[in-house]
Computed example of a mutant assay.
Amino acid sequence: MALVKAGVVVLDCAEPEKLAEFYKGLLDARETDVTANRVEVEGAGGTRLAFRRDVNATPPSWPRPENSLQAHLDFLVEDLDEAERKVVGLGGRPLDAKGAPGPYEERGYADPAGHSFTLRRVPSTAPKQG
């Protein structure tokens, strides 16, 4: 058995309850632990995130250089347009990050508290039709 196991990614924010609602909607998640200053959720695929109250939290300014990228999350999707509609419908916003290098098509967003994340399209494993 491993001495240290991966825990949970924790995002600081002013209102953890509201941010948890965004990620619950995005990840089809359920709350697993709630305290006065922290909400933890687990997505349908097992992804665990927690949101910790920090009234002085300052979101990163990525892609602008000041206050730089502190951390970001990558989520895999099959349909970028459908996923984008869901993100925006839940209160997220697209970030200006056109032309990101890499082997996968991806788009950058910010959650309602300003944390950046990326939706990356995973190539279909289905055989080509026609």
Score class of each variant (00 low, 15 high):
residue 19 L to S: 11
residue 115 H to R: 04
residue 73 L to T: 12
residue 120 R to M: 12
residue 11 L to Q: 08
residue 84 E to Q: 06
residue 17 E to D: 14
residue 74 D to R: 01
residue 129 Q to F: 03
residue 115 H to I: 14
residue 16 P to Q: 13
residue 105 E to T: 13
residue 19 L to G: 09
residue 5 K to S: 13
residue 12 D to V: 01
residue 34 V to T: 09
residue 13 C to G: 03
residue 22 F to I: 09
residue 82 E to R: 15
residue 82 E to Y: 09
residue 87 V to S: 09
residue 59 P to R: 07
residue 130 G to Y: 08
residue 108 G to T: 02
residue 62 W to V: 00
residue 104 Y to L: 12
residue 28 D to E: 14
residue 31 E to L: 03
residue 125 T to C: 06
residue 119 L to Q: 05
residue 66 E to R: 04
residue 73 L to D: 05
residue 35 T to Y: 05
residue 40 E to N: 14
residue 6 A to R: 11
residue 26 L to Y: 05
residue 68 S to P: 05
residue 118 T to M: 06
residue 71 A to F: 02
residue 37 N to H: 15
residue 115 H to Q: 11
residue 107 R to Q: 13
residue 96 D to C: 01
residue 80 L to K: 08
residue 5 K to V: 06
residue 74 D to A: 13
residue 74 D to L: 03
residue 35 T to D: 02
residue 56 N to M: 10
residue 1 M to Y: 14
residue 110 A to Y: 03
residue 129 Q to W: 05
residue 14 A to V: 07
residue 86 K to I: 04
residue 12 D to F: 04
residue 91 G to C: 12
residue 88 V to C: 05
residue 87 V to Y: 11
residue 129 Q to S: 11
residue 45 G to K: 08
residue 37 N to V: 12
residue 37 N to G: 15
residue 58 T to L: 10
residue 4 V to I: 12
residue 38 R to G: 09
residue 78 E to P: 07
residue 117 F to G: 04
residue 87 V to A: 10
residue 33 D to T: 07
residue 45 G to Y: 02
residue 104 Y to F: 14
residue 86 K to W: 00
residue 3 L to D: 10
residue 80 L to Y: 07
